[in-house]
Design a protein around this nucleic acid. Structure first.
Lengths: 221, 221
DNA sequence: TAGATTGTTAATCGATTAACAATC
DNA sequence: TAGATTGTTAATCGATTAACAATC
């Protein structure tokens, strides 16, 4: 069943946030929520909550609201969390290792099945129970194992080559932690974590706040 | 000089991207660029490029375009990259340590000046040349040192308390790596890196691509 | 039933794109 | 000068918000 009219990316980006808040509610033992309660918690309008869900169907009950656990599962299914996904991490530097050890992803159905690097000091060692293999083993590994997602945590100069490689091996999802913009065919999905960009954005707002403070001090004189 | 009409957040989020592409151009020895060239590289329209810059003034030359290095510096100044910023990292787990060791931030003027944790096995050890101190030393540290940004990489249950603490100590910028939504006063800036959200979003698109592939296979039969 | 809240359409708002006069 | 490209206003597009009939 094909997606009819394309759902805006910005709506998709909000689904994990809904999922997160619904998980919280569920853990707090709350079994029922209205669009306006949920919106208030998340800092958006009730209209937006209902409008977002409307893209996928109708999950609520008029006059009642939403069943927390049911809605959570619906959104989980939309996101595909009901299916197990496998990831390989390419680049076992500080960040790559931290991600490999980050156990939280596993709970959501994402498991790291391989870690690769070029550094001979790392190749052969283990992260948790996974051997770090040399990058030149990636092709073989992907032939022998189903891999859904490649996590790219290599230095920026290698990012493009690594992306091209994993795409050629049939991987359709790339989680890109480098600052490089990856140009990929339309049948490949890329999600970027641009740490530096995020930090610079924060820096801008901090600067603005400092400037505002200085102004206020001047006015007080 | 106060910011006149507020510049949209979405424009601010693009500034680091411009900065990044301009740095690349500069490193490639390219000294001149037009809005349409820059837009093409970044995957946006030339109109948007000009419209974005128009928020801050006029940096170009009609009939010529922009001087790469000059534009880069202008954007750097807007972002406040000309000023040195200090950060403390709270939570020296895998992610916190990886960020502390991530040297790239330093180049952009952000330096880690303190790392804190509660784990007695970590307290007293070093990351690079920085001592890991116990979290109960944060107040004292902030009184004795100017700290611009707090990086929060603690488990989610402690996130709120840590945020409240650093805000009470006068820190105005929070880089939040936990999955918790931090409710902060309006004179505090928060930037979130929600790794799980990003991964789930990627998972959604991977799911869609898989479904599309299956459909195509069916049609071929 | 009366009250509440959804699903869904319509109105508004803001961001992107187009257009073009200004000018290098 | 002629050509190119900006700065800037106007038009379009898309996302958010408001409104309300449907209905639990």
């Amino acid at each position: 069943m094909a997606q009819q009219k394309k759902i805006p990316d910005i709506v998709i980006k909000r689904l994990p946030i809904y999922y997160r808040f619904l998980t919280n509610l569920h853990q707090m033992g709350i079994s029922r929520v209205s669009s306006s309660d949920l919106g208030k918690k998340m800092g958006i309008t009730s209209s937006q909550v209902r409008q977002d869900f409307f893209n996928f169907g109708s999950f609520g009950l008029q006059g009642y609201g939403y069943d927390v656990e049911q809605l959570r599962q619906e959104i989980g299914n939309i996101l595909g969390l009901n299916k197990q996904r496998t990831m390989i991490i390419i680049g076992a530097g500080h960040l790559g290792q931290a991600l490999a050890r980050h156990s939280a992803f596993e709970k959501e159905g994402y498991s790291v099945v391989g870690v690769f690097d070029v550094n001979p000091h790392l190749v052969g060692t283990k992260i948790r129970d996974i051997d770090i293999q040399h990058v030149n083993k990636i092709s073989q590994f992907c032939r022998e194992n189903k891999v859904d997602i490649a996590v790219i945590t290599v230095p920026r100069t290698y990012a493009k080559d690594v992306a091209d490689l994993v795409i050629s091996l049939g991987i359709r999802g790339i989680w890109n932690f480098t600052s490089v913009k990856l140009n990929v065919p339309e049948d490949v999905a890329v999600e970027n974590i641009h740490l530096s960009d995020s930090l610079m954005t924060l820096g801008y707002y901090v600067k603005c706040l400092h400037e505002r403070e200085e102004e206020q001090e001047e006015q007080e004189e």
